[in-house]
């Protein structure tokens, strides 16, 4: 049965910003492996057209007139934020970037 490497799982967990314990890494190695085994079936498909379907919508994208609409008041912006600071939303400091 296909299994992903520990490094692959750790890389993906970091991309997804999900903390994984060593046990979880093991279980993801198998789970992701099994999924790849299933989806790898598509590699046998040949002769398809390159045109990609990014959405089932066939209409041309409609464009919005450049006008300013209603905006939120400051209190609404902050209403669901777990941590605020004055008029701002607060997060731990983002260093050097």
């Amino acid at each position: 049965m296909k299994k992903l490497s520990v490094e692959e799982v750790k890389h993906v967990a970091h991309l997804a910003r999900i903390q994984v314990s060593d046990e979880e890494i093991e279980s993801y190695r198998t789970r992701l492996g099994a999924l790849y085994e299933m989806v790898d079936g598509i590699h046998e498909i040949e002769g398809y057209s390159e045109e990609m379907m990014i959405t089932p919508v066939e209409e041309v994208c409609s464009l919005r007139k450049d006008e300013v609409g209603a905006m939120l008041d400051g209190a609404s912006v902050l209403s669901n934020a777990p941590k605020t600071n004055g008029k701002f939303i607060e997060v731990p400091v983002v260093i050097n970037e």
Binding site: L4, E8, V9, H11, V12, A13, L15, A16, I18, Y28, R31, L32, L35, V39, I42, I45, Y48, S49, E50, E51, M52, M53, I54
Partner: peptide, 26 residues
């Protein structure tokens, strides 16, 4: 989320996601 991140990561995006969109169109 883990699976989806993996499927879009690096070369996988082309191997899996792009191909899926193309076949989906067909």
């Amino acid at each position: 989320i883990m699976v989806g991140s993996s499927l879009l990561s690096g070369k996988n995006a082309k191997l899996y996601y792009d191909k899926a969109l193309s076949i989906r169109d067909d």
